[in-house]
């Protein structure tokens, strides 16, 4: 539906749009995303996406990288926010805790993006994961 309507563009601003779009795509070519183009091409080809233009794969790569970076940033915020709660109970070593991406933080971050990741409780992400409830009980 959107696709059909989006093509009904008034002729006035079309020229400006075109130049802006070309500029944007050209700027993408200068930017090297972390996700390699070949990887994106491979998965796009798998999903039936056909386009010889490398600028578009670059666009997809950048979009994906942005998405992942956003999720990771959110997870980082979660990670930074979490130790503050437990800080009182733990030793001082926990204060200088390294920032580690965990499933807990990731699932929280992803929930905002509409991805529902259930962290299985029986998975031992860390060697101390199983010991936590026991130590708390004590």
């Amino acid at each position: 539906m959107n696709g059909q309507t989006s093509h009904q563009q008034p002729k006035d601003g079309r020229h400006d749009d075109d130049t802006a779009l070309t500029e944007f795509l050209a700027s993408l070519m200068d930017f090297t995303p972390t996700i390699p183009d070949e990887l994106v091409e491979h998965y796009l080809a798998k999903s039936g996406f056909q386009c010889p233009d490398t600028r578009l794969t670059r666009l997809v790569a950048v979009a994906t990288q942005k998405f992942i970076a956003d999720v990771a940033t959110d997870a980082l915020q979660q990670c930074k926010a979490r130790p503050a709660v437990i800080k009182d109970k733990r030793d001082k070593q926990q204060k200088e805790k390294r920032l580690i991406l965990t499933m807990e933080d990731l699932s929280k971050a992803l929930r905002e993006y509409g991805v529902n990741v259930k962290h299985q409780e029986y998975f031992a992400d860390t060697p101390s994961a199983g010991l936590d409830p026991a130590s708390r009980d004590e």
Partner: peptide, 15 residues
């Protein structure tokens, strides 16, 4: 790049 210093295998796999 975001600022993490480490990751759990499972979390990275999900990502």
């Amino acid at each position: 790049g975001v600022g993490f210093e480490g990751f759990n295998e499972s979390a990275l796999d999900s990502l």
